[in-house]
Amino acid sequence: MSAVLTLDRVSRVHGEGASAVEALKSVTFTAAAGELVAVMGPSGSGKSTLLTLAGGLDSPTSGTVTVEGADLGSLGLKDRARMRRTAIGYVFQDFNLIPALTAAENVALPLELDGQRPRAARAAARLALDEVGIGHLADRFPDDMSGGQAQRVAIARAVVGERRLILADEPTGALDTETGEDILQLLRARCDAGAAGVLVTHEARHAAWADRVVFLRDGVVVDESGSAPVDALLDAGQGR
């Protein structure tokens, strides 16, 4: 079984001296290919910190974060930015789409930033939009879309270019129950197709879509539920 994401004894302290807050305390965590892991906890439990560290948006005070075998801490700024465009997909609660770009342009952006030719990038973007069921909205602008459609665009952007680590921060927060489930279904399908997913949520109903649920309290993992069926799945077929 290949771990796409590994956090090894990761701590993150915000501030210094007496006012220092330890957001994560020596947390060890992995997400394997084909696995969706949910991280649950109340606000202030460290779940968002965990996700920003995994995505290379922040650096740990101690410990290491490894994505696809690369230690993010030892990469330079440039290489880390490259990892974020090519290996790591991020999905946010408020979609974070660029309003001046169409759906297809939003999705193609990471590829173009990575140096792909615009035509190839657009073609890949359309494919990714097809996959999340909104190929027909490729030329529409985010403001002319429903929340569910916009989040589908964001997911397409997160997975375009065969990225194998998907990090989702309350991706269903702004959506109604049924639309939210469609989004989870998409994340789930990406993981079933071989990506590793980490889903941060405070809703148990959404966390239940994951193979494993990790409970954080005050920066520490207190519980973990669900077996890791990934090994069995891989042995049964794909032989990754």
């Binding site: 279904q185 239940a208 994951a210 649920v213 519980d223 539920s225 669900g226």
Partner: peptide, 23 residues
């Protein structure tokens, strides 16, 4: 509380799996 939460979460995961197969 922790033990119960883990057990209830497992049940919730099972129901969700059933739902997925329903879908």
């Amino acid at each position: 509380i922790q033990q119960q939460r883990t057990a209830t979460m497992k049940a919730l995961q099972d129901y969700t799996r059933l739902k997925r197969s329903e879908r």
